[in-house]
C-alpha cells in the first residue's frame, strides 16, 4: 500500500499524521504536485480553507487533485478540508476543489466562543459514541442524491461520503479516538 498523504500547506496536519502513525500507516506530507505520486489516500486537514485554497492554486495542486479524485483516490476532508471538497460554499462565489456534492456554510456555529465538543453515535463508524470536536466549524446544509449522510447534529450534516470522498465538519485528529481514521483506511482497502 502506498503512503497516505496529508495536505501540509497550513493547519493541523501533524495531528492527522500522528493519528495515522498510531495505526501503523506510512504517511507523506503533501506540499507540491510531485508529493501526490503513488498515494493510496489523502487527508485534507483542518486549518483555514482560504489559506489552503490559495496555496492549492498557487502551487498547481488543484488540477492534479481533481484528476486523482476522478480516478478514485480516497480523499477525506476535516473541517477546512470539508470546505475544500464542497461544490458550493453558501454565501460565497469561491469554490476550491469542488469535488463533493454538498453545500457548506463556513463558521456555521459562529466564532471561537461557539466552538464546542460533544458526543454522538455514528453507526457504521463506531459502536460506541464518538467524541466530536468542532472548532469554528462548518456544516453542510444540502447534499446531492449520491451523497450518503453519516451523521447529523441538530438537523445539519456533519459527516458525509460520496464514493471515494469523505467529509467531516469535526476533528477526529484532535481526540484519542481513531474510529474515523480506521473508517477512512477501510475505504482504501
Amino acid at each position: 500500500m502506498g503512503p497516505i498523504g496529508v495536505l501540509a500547506l497550513q493547519g493541523a496536519f501533524r495531528e492527522h499524521r500522528a493519528s495515522l502513525e498510531r495505526l501503523g500507516v506510512p504517511v507523506r506530507e503533501v506540499r507540491l504536485p510531485e508529493d501526490l505520486r503513488g498515494l493510496s489516500g489523502l487527508i485534507l486537514p483542518g486549518g483555514e480553507s482560504t489559506v489552503m485554497g490559495r496555496l492549492l492554486r498557487d502551487f498547481g495542486l488543484s488540477e492534479p487533485l481533481r484528476r486523482l479524485a476522478a480516478e478514485g483516490l480516497p480523499i477525506w476532508g476535516t473541517c477546512a478540508g470539508m470546505i475544500l471538497l464542497a461544490k458550493r460554499i453558501i454565501g460565497e462565489d469561491t469554490v476550491h476543489l469542488g469535488l463533493m456534492d454538498i453545500a457548506v456554510r463556513r463558521n456555521a456555529y459562529g466564532g471561537q466562543l461557539d466552538s464546542f465538543r460533544t458526543e454522538l453515535n455514528v453507526p457504521g463508524v463506531s459502536p460506541a459514541p464518538l467524541p466530536l470536536v468542532f472548532i469554528r466549524a462548518p456544516y453542510a446544509e444540502e447534499a446531492g442524491p449520491r451523497v450518503r449522510v453519516l451523521a447529523t447534529l441538530k438537523g445539519k450534516i456533519i459527516a458525509a461520503e460520496e464514493g471515494n470522498l469523505l467529509a467531516t465538519a469535526f476533528h477526529p485528529e484532535l481526540t484519542d479516538d481513531l474510529s474515523f481514521h480506521r473508517y477512512f483506511l477501510d475505504k482504501i482497502k
Binding site: 493547519g11 493541523a12 496536519f13 486549518g47 483555514e48 466552538s115 470536536v133 476533528h171 484532535l174
Partner: peptide, 18 residues
C-alpha cells in the same frame, strides 16, 4: 478544562500560517 482544550485546539488550526 474542556474550554481550555478547545482554545488550544484553535491555536493548532492556525499552525503553519501567518
Amino acid at each position: 478544562n474542556e474550554r481550555y482544550t478547545l482554545n488550544k485546539n484553535l491555536a493548532q488550526m492556525l499552525k503553519g500560517g501567518v
